[in-house]
Design a protein around this nucleic acid. Structure first.
Lengths: 254, 254
DNA sequence: TTTGGCCAATTGTTAAGACAATATCAGGTC
DNA sequence: GACCTGATATTGTCTTAACAATTGGCCAAA
């Protein structure tokens, strides 16, 4: 049994909270704790100050402090144990999967994204598309097919279907901004997405588009995204070059 | 703009809460709401009773009701909007990815799991293994290699490394019970796991083991799992037959 | 008709307090 | 020394209360 590092760090830099601003207090606190972990100021295995004391020092109630800590527990960076305290999880921390598009992902990793628009047309929904989008079969939908590149190297071939009220999206918007940015600019806020991740061999056409050998292994992802009223706003079938892209998931047991 | 179904269901079956039992009240409530959604009693798009009224009817405080609802929002089944209310998300509901092993997954889908144990031996940690497990390079570790089958069809080849205090696991346990069950029976409770999901071609040996053609596409998953003290307890490299297994992820925007 | 403003409904945030459950640890007893 | 017991520390659950922010609809005014 190895000895745990048990020092309780004082976290001295916890003073100036914006009490009248629009950012919730619990969020301000959770951001600072997270930063302290990422920066190594709170090393792996170290114990966090207990909730009551932390609240007293910050001039906050226990529920507020508790919520701040819970946010980070949900991200997989902290672990709480009743009777013991709250500790920083060991192991290098990694970026979490979020509800973003490939475009956002690439921007975040400082690559230059670009797009080849292969198709942008109206199509009537077949059975599968209709089911995924929650519309009746035969409804008009917008069909998009794109190749996404990062630093001019092809990364993914993406097919998307959107409900009819998005018909009219300009091709140029998709080339410049990425689908999720276009949707956001039209007032849509994505809230929930369900993804299936799998693998298969490439078709010959995909091999050409992605500049890989025929019959290469591709990473595939099917996704349906819903807005804040629960309506399906996008259904997509994507395939990625596995040497350039992979998915990262953090699971936290409740 | 399509008309939303707006009827607020009364949810009449909400009476008998176990107030003295060990199950938290918020959990009892969230379970019932979830059941009501899954069973179709709360159809897609329908509005939930508001938090205050629901609390009054159940004899619960608003924070308790709120927490119950939040649990289901986090699962992606409900969407809340300030000033509006809480609605059931459209679209068919699907099972969520949880912190379980392949063994558990297969058991849940009513397939008969079995195992071929290829290796169970002590190995010194190389650089990568040491980093993932958070031990010093050269430390003794337990190495396990298995083929997992469902209804006698091979589904995955799995390599795992465990810290030295697990050396001594009996081969028979792994064949009968699955790694996560063995760890749980030794008092380990997994709390956090970080996974990378990708794809690649199979090696010739893997193709034989999985009974697929040479150079098939495989779905791969690397995982490091941490227990409730934040210590790494398992590091694994798995590859799956994509025609028999895929990952399902639900993302919820905060 | 359209625009603007006010009002009601609903979720979001914060507080203060109480009790329960669980883990560690020190001490005492056998 | 081994085992039980109680004290202490810490997170988990629940209540009551208040105010803030956002949305949608109604109504009056331009």
């Amino acid at each position: 049994m190895s000895v745990q590092e048990e020092k309780t760090l004082p976290m001295g830099l916890f003073m100036d909270l914006e009490r009248s601003g629009p950012i919730p207090l619990y969020f301000q606190v959770s951001q600072r704790i997270e930063t302290a972990i990422l920066s190594g100021e709170l090393p792996a295995g170290s114990r966090l100050e207990n909730e009551v004391a932390l609240g007293q020092r910050l001039g906050l109630s226990r529920p507020t402090v508790r919520r701040a800590i819970q946010e980070i527990v949900d991200k997989g960076l902290l672990v709480r144990r009743r009777g013991i305290g709250t500790q920083v999880v060991h192991g290098q921390v990694t970026r979490k999967v979020e509800l973003t598009s490939l475009y956002d992902d690439l921007t975040n990793t400082h690559k230059v994204p670009s797009t080849h628009l292969l198709a942008l047309e109206n199509r009537v929904a077949d059975a599968k598309t209709a089911e995924r989008l929650g519309v009746v079969e035969g409804s008009p939908t917008l069909y998009i097919r794109r190749v996404r590149l990062a630093d001019d190297v092809p990364v993914a071939v993406m097919e998307n279907w959107l409900p009819e009220d998005f018909i009219g999206i300009a091709p140029n918007d998709l080339v410049i901004h990425g689908l999720y940015q276009v949707l956001r600019s039209r007032g849509v806020t994505m809230r929930v997405a369900r993804q299936h991740i799998g693998a298969r061999k490439s078709t010959n056409e995909e091999a050409v588009l992605l500049e890989v050998e025929k019959n290469s292994a591709l990473l595939t992802m099917d996704r349906t995204a819903y807005d804040n009223s629960g309506r399906a706003v996008e259904f997509g079938q994507h395939c990625y070059r596995p040497d350039l892209y992979s998915f990262e998931v953090t699971l936290v047991e409740k």
